[in-house]
Design a protein around this nucleic acid. Structure first.
Lengths: 186, 186
DNA sequence: TTAATCATGTAACACGTTACATGATTGC
DNA sequence: GCAATCATGTAACGTGTTACATGATTAA
């Protein structure tokens, strides 16, 4: 997936590894993360496959930078990926792994667990309001302004997802509190 | 995460690698997947760490099997993991990666993309109805029947998540169709 | 002068996937 | 006789994380 994420970004315009890292950090952060170590490695792999090419740019005083751009065969690969059957629906959910085995801990501790998730939902929303993925900035950068509709869709998903998780944790906490009351009633 | 998933299962009772694979396939499938190759490797790692031990069981005629069980230090590790701050909230979403870059393809193709996701939502629901994660079976196996409440929570999450994704794809398709109508109006 | 930002990476390890390999028993 | 299930793995590769390493410029 990261390979195609990088191809997709380079398809908007040439970038350095550092630019790519910043884009992941600023705009894709809520659905994908990537360290520079991985990005630089993948850029080498993409170059070996002939999907991207690089150009050394010397800067006054500053060290050189490498500008990467997508090639014709890179565009082909990007489109192959977009057209393949796999929608990417199956995901792994660490949050559910941790929930599944909570029978080992006390009800009180588990209420705390769900409250911590709620706090993270809140953080996510605050982070989104403080620096929303900067769509208008990208819109200017890219020739085709229709791209923005798909960017907005990912944000809409993010919001709906957070609301859902928040609602789910409320239910979970309610169930645990009902259970606690039942046992004290005996 | 897989390490702790395996520890969590062995905490319910001794199992072979094959049993663990079946449990992932039958009951944890909608939030985690694991191949036998990975399971057998992790079991060796867990054994080297002293978190599990194994016992060879000879069977009449059949080849031996290895029964794995959790050790005292394995239980400690399981509890350390359950109590650590990380809730596992951050996930990677391949579905959003594929959505983000769809500006490269036509509106018609992208409507198809979202309809394929809806079909997968439907498959998920059918699969859930055909063979729901068998809670009552586990409940008998385990001493503490309170575990079931957490298993049910993961299923509840699964259902809420699918509903959300389905709703989201409806919105996406609606937006794309509005866009199509606007452009034909010109 | 100190922290942040720009800019590029290597090394080692951890985790996940795909393909291959073997062989017995059980049910149709 | 054939497919499914039980049962165990290896090898190679792909992807992701953590820690380390370097060094210039810019703003407080």
């Amino acid at each position: 997936m990261l390979k195609h994420g990088i191809l997709g970004l380079l398809n908007y315009g040439a970038m350095t590894g550092y630019d790519i890292m910043l884009t992941f950090k600023n705009s894709l952060r809520f659905f994908w993360s990537a360290q520079t170590s991985q990005i630089y490695r993948e850029l080498q792999t993409l170059k070996n496959k002939g999907w991207v090419k690089d150009e050394n740019i010397s800067q006054n005083g500053k060290p050189d930078k490498k500008l990467f751009s997508i090639t014709a065969s890179g565009k082909e690969e990007l489109n192959r990926w977009l057209l393949e059957d796999d929608t990417g629906f199956e995901t792994k959910s660490p949050i559910l792994m941790k929930t599944f085995f909570r029978g080992e801990r006390s009800i009180e501790e588990n209420v705390e667990f769900f409250k911590r998730i709620q706090a993270e939902c809140q953080e996510f929303i605050s982070g989104m309001q403080a620096s929303p993925p900067n769509i208008t900035k990208y819109q200017k950068m890219v020739k085709n302004p229709e791209n923005a509709i798909y960017w907005k869709m990912t944000i809409e998903y993010g919001i709906m997802y957070i609301k859902m998780v928040n609602e789910w944790t409320n239910k979970c906490i309610q169930e645990l509190e009902d259970l606690k009351n039942e046992s004290t009633d005996d």
